[in-house]
Computed example of a mutant assay.
Amino acid sequence: MFDRIRRYAGRFRGTEEEKAPESRPSRERRTHNLFEAAAAYVAARAEDDQDRIEEAAGWVSPEALSFGVSELAYRAVITLARERDESPSAVARALLGLPVA
């Protein structure tokens, strides 16, 4: 997964640096928060929208995206565990289709 993100980001590094800031659409000039990028990336993955996946992956560095996705997963597991009145471990394993340890 992260290799795909790195390849995508690498494709645009050269072209983005060569473009003058005025030639970029105003939407691209906006600095994205790593949590916005993670939320958009995960939502696009859930909807299997490759264009949005690639767009969100380009908003921040691969390392920042990885951290944001990890933080989103942590918060989601904690929230589901509280809602289900189960342990975070049981919820995480259930989400991944693993047997309860």
Rank of each mutant, 00 (worst) to 15 (best):
I78F: 07
T31Q: 12
W59H: 08
S89P: 00
L72A: 13
A39E: 06
S66L: 07
E17R: 15
S61W: 01
P25S: 14
F2R: 11
S89G: 07
W59R: 14
H32P: 04
D51M: 15
R27L: 12
S26F: 09
R93K: 10
D3I: 05
E16A: 15
A73N: 11
R6D: 01
R13Q: 10
R29A: 10
A43T: 15
A9F: 01
E86F: 01
P25G: 15
T79A: 13
G14H: 06
R29Y: 02
R4P: 00
S61C: 02
F35Q: 14
S61E: 02
E63V: 08
A44T: 05
F12A: 05
D85L: 09
R93M: 06
E55G: 10
E71Y: 07
S70G: 14
P99G: 05
D49V: 14
G97A: 04
L65P: 02
I5W: 01
H32K: 13
A39G: 05
W59N: 09
A20T: 12
R4G: 01
A73K: 13
P88A: 12
E36A: 12
E55Q: 15
A46Y: 05
R27T: 10
E83G: 07
P21Q: 13
R75N: 14
R11V: 03
P99E: 06
E18L: 15
D85F: 04
A73L: 12
G10C: 03
R4Y: 00
Y41S: 11
Y74P: 00
E18F: 04
A39C: 04
E16V: 13
L72E: 07
G10L: 02
F12T: 07
L95E: 00
F67C: 05
G97M: 03
T15I: 12
T15G: 01
S23H: 09
R11H: 04
G68R: 10
A92R: 06
R52E: 15
E22R: 13
D48H: 14
R84V: 01
R11I: 03
A94T: 06
L96W: 02
P21T: 13
R24C: 10
V69G: 05
D85M: 09
E83Y: 03
G14L: 08
A56D: 10
F35Y: 08
A40C: 12
